[in-house]
Design a protein around this nucleic acid. Structure first.
Lengths: 198, 198
DNA sequence: CTCTTGTCGAACACTGGTGTACGAGTTACG
DNA sequence: CGTAACTCGTACACCAGTGTTCGACAAGAG
């Protein structure tokens, strides 16, 4: 439903470029440091601090916009992953493409958590999460994933294993190249029904 | 090696009580909110803000002291857990007693992470972690835990599953009473060798 | 009992952030 | 080309926290 008789004169190309740059800078800055100040973000965007406030009423709104954008981008990339075939192999493929995404935006997520309500955060993640849930459900129906624990729990575990991997890398105890394999191996184990051979 | 010719006159009973109260209040306050201010902690302790600075040079030192104490307390409780017998059952027992500890001090950990170096945090956790590592090593030696992934990775995964459980509880998707069971079920699966029946 | 140690509140300087206001200059759009 | 939209820097008010200092006052130790 596009607004009839739009009173908004539509942003100038100039402004759109700024907004783009700011959003981009916000994602990069917040991914480095979740407490990045508005000044910092503005500087990264090559823009004055005031300009930022011209487009976003306050820091919280900016963070939310950045988060929304980052998730949309990531989600789009993930949709390309083929989830058909053996759920276990599909899961491995999904992990392969999503884990780096997760690890990169960890700090951004922290920033969002500092400023947004837990409910809002969950809303923003709804899209990506649904896809994983769908896959897990199918695996359960086909008997290759366990059914003695709730689907949401399993999805949560997968998520947390990825975060764990990011921690291990930060601590220098794990190298990025093997991370995806470790995650997949661990998750597959964790998802396997208790009474089924691997 | 106690200092010969102690120049320090030893704290007064008065002061010791204060320190105790402050540490206690710090643990409680920071467990509620990782960004609790010194004023807040002082108030909780029933003590003036200045008094806090009388005993701890700055907020960071206070947080570190609180963290150290909380870990020491928790560690002491954990040492009581019997780790003999089947490693799988021992692991379940250990999870049972440690998981609530972890979930309670999550926020305190966050506070510490804001202020202390990652290395320092790891040092503080060394004690408790060693115990888990020992158990996992034994399980590997006995063939009931997988050896295709490093011990440190497995321990990290266990840790992160606990955090995941805490998240789920916060989100209202999990009730505290079943949490320990979920964690144990998941971790045991994750630790099982890929080619072994559950 | 006395003297040292500790406590308290109020006040202060300082820091680092947020959000607003202004005015001059620039840039796109029609 | 003219005007409205946008940008920029500087400056400001404001807030919340940290860490320090002061002087008066309690309380424990010897």
């Amino acid at each position: 439903m596009t607004a009839t008789r739009a009173k908004v004169p539509a942003k100038r190309a100039d402004a759109q470029r700024s907004i783009e740059a700011i959003l981009d800078a916000a994602i990069r800055s917040l991914s480095r440091n979740p407490e990045a100040s508005v000044s910092e973000i503005a500087k990264t965007a090559g823009v004055g601090r005031v300009t930022v406030y011209g487009h976003f009423p306050n820091r919280a709104d900016l963070v939310e916009a950045a988060m929304t954008r980052a998730i949309a981008d990531g989600h789009a990339g993930l949709e390309a992953v083929d989830l058909s075939g053996d759920p276990r192999e599909a899961l491995a493929r999904l992990i392969d493409s999503s884990w780096q995404l997760v690890s990169q935006s960890r700090s951004l997520l922290t920033a969002a958590q500092d400023v947004l309500s837990p409910g809002r955060i969950r809303e923003l993640h709804a899209g990506p999460v649904e896809r994983v849930e769908g896959l897990v459900e199918r695996g359960r129906a086909e008997g290759v994933f366990r059914t003695d624990l709730p689907t949401t729990w399993l999805v949560g575990v997968l998520h947390s294993i990825m975060h764990s991997a990011a921690d291990e890398i930060n601590a220098g105890r794990l190298t990025p190249d093997v991370a995806a394999d470790y995650i997949a191996a661990t998750a597959l184990s964790a998802f396997t029904p208790p009474s089924l051979a691997g």
